[in-house]
């Protein structure tokens, strides 16, 4: 196989693009996809202080690397979830990357800073760990950005993540989630701007980027992910992709270009007020994170 650009030996074939690339031109392809994403949805401005949500996995480390390559001043934030060995190893990968690239990595540890871990929260609420985990991460990233003067939070959600969420939202006709699903959410009172610069790149591309650029990421899966329904959606979409390359991109990009607007129109707007404990806007008394924290830390007295 030959590189589409230089005809040199290819290292990766991308059936969706009907193209093969050598190392150099594959990296250029990834940069170009991020540049296009950023431009198309006005995700980042020159001079923005950028906070990258770093997990130690392929997507977040590749994202951080790409943003720095493209000239953005980007710091990382790692949230310690307290998932045993998996969390320790993930932090190790994030730290090693930051050290090698001389980048600033901040760490918030759920147990130390908020008094509970994801497994404890899952046990206390008798719900799937991923729910408590996602809620905690969203809360911590948002608060950290607001409290430390970052203009924007970048997350490593890729094309496969977004297509899988879209499939789940459509299968359940979850209209609220459909309205909210977008690669760029503007800042609002109490909420930092939140963007997904990798939404045009698949997870195979992100893993390949890390292998080629010698980014040592956490390959092993989180032990809590097993049986997760989004993994099943990803497998189904990949089965379609195999028969008909480009399906995932057509599904997601078509939604963003042609359908998303129909879900955001005229929805009821819920009045939000600041959570009395942490200040995060919420429709209820306390925000969902503070409620989770109460349940996860049993009151002893």
């Amino acid at each position: 196989m030959k590189c589409r650009v230089c005809r040199g030996p290819a290292v990766i074939d991308l059936r969706r693009h009907n193209a093969n690339f050598c190392h150099e031109h594959f990296v250029a392809h990834c940069e170009e996809q991020v540049r296009r994403a950023v431009r198309h949805f006005a995700m980042l401005e020159p001079g923005d202080r950028v906070l990258v949500a770093v997990s130690g996995g392929k997507d977040s480390l590749a994202l951080w690397d790409l943003l720095v390559r493209l000239g953005y001043a980007a710091d990382g934030l790692y949230v310690g979830l307290g998932i045993d060995r998996y969390s320790d190893e993930s932090l190790g990968h994030a730290r090693a990357f930051a050290t090698r690239r001389q980048l600033d990595l901040h760490v918030v540890d759920l147990a130390t800073d908020h008094g509970f871990t994801v497994p404890e929260a899952a046990a206390a609420t008798r719900r799937a760990p991923c729910g408590a985990c996602g809620l905690s991460k969203r809360h911590v990233f948002n608060r950290y950005a607001l409290d430390h003067g970052y203009d924007v939070v970048c997350t490593g959600h890729n094309l496969d993540d977004e297509a899988a969420v879209l499939l789940g939202n459509v299968l359940h006709w979850d209209l609220d989630s459909l309205a909210r699903q977008h690669p760029a959410l503007p800042a609002a009172p109490g909420f930092a701007r939140k963007v997904k610069p990798l939404y045009r790149l698949g997870e195979r591309e992100m893993a390949a980027y890390c292998v080629l650029e010698r980014i040592d990421y956490q390959v092993d899966e989180c032990p809590m992910a097993a049986g997760n329904r989004h993994l099943a959606y990803k497998e189904s979409l990949n089965a379609l992709e195999l028969r008909s390359p480009g399906s995932k991109a057509a599904f997601l990009f078509g939604y963003l270009e042609r359908a998303h607007g129909s879900f955001t129109r005229g929805g009821p707007t819920v009045a939000l007020h600041p959570c009395p404990r942490c200040g995060t806007p919420t429709p209820g008394d306390e925000c969902a994170f503070c409620r989770l924290q109460h349940r996860a830390i049993p009151v002893t007295s």
Binding site: P129, T155, H157, Q181, M206, A225, N228, H230, P281
Partner: peptide
């Protein structure tokens, strides 16, 4: 042979935080 599929529902964040 390295799988590239990863993540749970929480990684796949919903729109607004909290």
């Amino acid at each position: 042979i390295r799988p590239v599929i990863s993540g749970g529902a929480g990684d796949i964040a919903r729109g607004t935080p909290a």
